[in-house]
Design a protein around this nucleic acid. Sequence first.
DNA 1: ATTATTTTGGACTGTTCAGTCCATAACTAC
DNA 2: GTAGTTATGGACTGAACAGTCCAAAATAAT
Lengths: 198, 198
Amino acid sequence: MPRCREFDIDHALDQALNAFWLKGYEATSMMDLMAAMGLSKSSFYECFGSKREALLAALRRYSEREMAETRRHFSADVPVAELLAAWVRHSIDPAACRPSQRCGCLIVNIAVELAPHDSEIEDAVRHHLDMLAAFLAETIQRGNAEGSIPVGLDPTHGADLLLNLVAGIQVLVKGGVEPHRLAAIIDVQLKCLFVTSD
Amino acid sequence: MPRCREFDIDHALDQALNAFWLKGYEATSMMDLMAAMGLSKSSFYECFGSKREALLAALRRYSEREMAETRRHFSADVPVAELLAAWVRHSIDPAACRPSQRCGCLIVNIAVELAPHDSEIEDAVRHHLDMLAAFLAETIQRGNAEGSIPVGLDPTHGADLLLNLVAGIQVLVKGGVEPHRLAAIIDVQLKCLFVTSD
DNA sequence: ATTATTTTGGACTGTTCAGTCCATAACTAC
DNA sequence: GTAGTTATGGACTGAACAGTCCAAAATAAT
């Protein structure tokens, strides 16, 4: 019966996601958002409700995408220790940087900008961090079982340490610390991780 | 000759600093700023020029204060290893949290929000990170000489690792990760740091 | 073709934004 | 006290803000 929607919601959401990723929430105006998404104001509000709801939807999408990509990465038939090292190094690979250089991680950016002032956004951030930490702990455990990661740290502690590593790296990236120093931090940290015990 | 200023510039700057620290740059309006500083619009502009210049001045002040406090902390006559542990743990001490709970570190917040889009602010951030990294490297070296820190890592690598540790922690604080997990991350990381070698 | 339904563009709202400006108040030096 | 200088409060600016609303266009089913 009805006239059907002319744009793809997920594609529009991806564009919104990129806009928030590039400039942050407050600094992204509705004008920026509409231009990035290629939507008129009424289509935007009809579909997403408000700027803040669009951000929440974008966060969910980012989180799902990121987790799916991470799971895929770790499903390769390669020693877990190697996969882990590659995964962490991926976070400072300029070639892998979307949507542009030095935009960091959307979750980290939004956590810093908004999480303490908006509990719904905090929940979205926390949910992603929890999923990621749980998956990393599982992965470390798999590495232990497989033998590529020496049994030492409690896997949940190792996972939190990795979480902290990538969060810190994303901040230093934005702060302009040189890539070779970031690479050194990662190398040293990975060595620590695979040697230390509780 | 002239009528003299009725407010204390440094005190006003501290209030501006707190406002930016609590809400970030974009989300802090001139109204917020004037209310926090107790200044009228004309006094503010006469004295600080613009919102952005006020932020730059606040960043400089924060950096100087933070570095001075850090230097003082490490001047105590206690083994460097202990001072270092206390210094890192201080960053998650709720009692030491100014201006409020979960506001993180001003430099980290601003680095994430603005550094990639404003080179002058990036310079201010970089300057602080460089000062801090240099001081930490020096401190680790002192710990090596003194014997409280085993000679292992290159001190500059150790310093970058510490920098990354506290940056990551500030993000996770804002993201709402539980204090006991943050404490565990710090404990494990410190153990790593004092054991690993290049 | 007509009708029912929904998207769409764009005009419009009132508010808030950072920043300017000036008349007045306050103070110092004489 | 008076003259000279500067800080101050508050009115004012135009632009940008998020969000509303409606008439017109487009589609699908009958």
